[in-house]
């Protein structure tokens, strides 16, 4: 409440765009200078994947932070969400071009036979739907449905973390941390929703003591 107006939305936008641009710039420069190590394709794939997950988590963190008083952060949510979609698109494109050589037969085989790719691809399709409908036009057109649709960011994040977890050979600490943070954020929203529902029923709340009296 007090935080609103402390920083202009414009400033928040500039900061958020800068934050998402820095890792993209670093990857671009690394690629241009051939400084991504012995296996640049793998390095770029992992980089794009991890930043997709990080941006997704960042966008999911905005609403809880707003509830906790940092209302000024609101404009950052869309930026982080769109960045997550962009990173996921890059991640998928590298895999499609360099790992599969545009062979859609291999793609189908991978998606059917490899659970970590099945869920990774599912997460990407969810992000694709969210990315396409991320504009203000779609937001107006869909109205309440837009809010419901964009809750798919939670399963997308959860599937991404699981995708990460399943491809690690040993030492799952890092994906486990992401899974923990996502669970925490989801827990916060569920608790919030439950509280809001409880508060929205003053009559039901008033009726309870009455029932108690009757009993």
């Amino acid at each position: 409440m007090a935080a609103r107006g402390l920083v202009a939305p414009r400033t928040i936008r500039v900061v958020a765009w800068t934050a998402v641009a820095i890792p993209a710039l670093m990857l671009g420069v690394g690629a241009a200078m051939d400084a991504l190590g012995a296996n640049p394709v793998e390095a770029a794939t992992h980089d794009a994947g991890i930043w997709a997950l990080r941006c997704l988590v960042a966008s999911l963190a905005i609403t809880p932070l707003r509830r906790l008083g940092l209302k000024m952060l609101a404009p950052a949510r869309r930026i982080f969400g769109v960045a997550a979609f962009a990173w996921a698109s890059l991640h998928f494109s590298i895999y499609l071009v360099f790992d599969l050589g545009f062979d859609f037969g291999f793609l189908a085989e991978d998606i059917v036979e490899r659970p970590y790719l099945t869920i990774g691809f599912t997460a990407f399709l969810l992000l694709l739907a969210l990315g396409v409908t991320s504009t203000r036009g779609w937001q107006k057109r869909l109205g309440r449905k837009w809010v419901q649709l964009h809750r798919a960011a939670y399963p997308a994040a959860a599937l991404s973390a699981l995708h990460f977890y399943w491809l690690v050979k040993a030492d799952v600490t890092e994906p486990a941390i992401y899974a923990g943070v996502i669970t925490g954020l989801l827990g916060f929203r569920l608790a919030d929703a439950w509280r809001a529902r409880a508060m929205k029923r003053p009559t039901a709340g008033a009726a309870a003591p009455g029932e108690a009296r009757a009993a």
């Binding site: 012995a38 790992d99 036979e113 490899r114 970590y116 399943w166």
Partner: peptide, 15 residues
């Protein structure tokens, strides 16, 4: 969890 049909030779783009 993953295919062993193909491999990336370090220094090559595709598998």
């Amino acid at each position: 969890r993953w295919s062993q049909k193909r491999e990336r030779r370090i220094g090559e783009w595709t598998k």
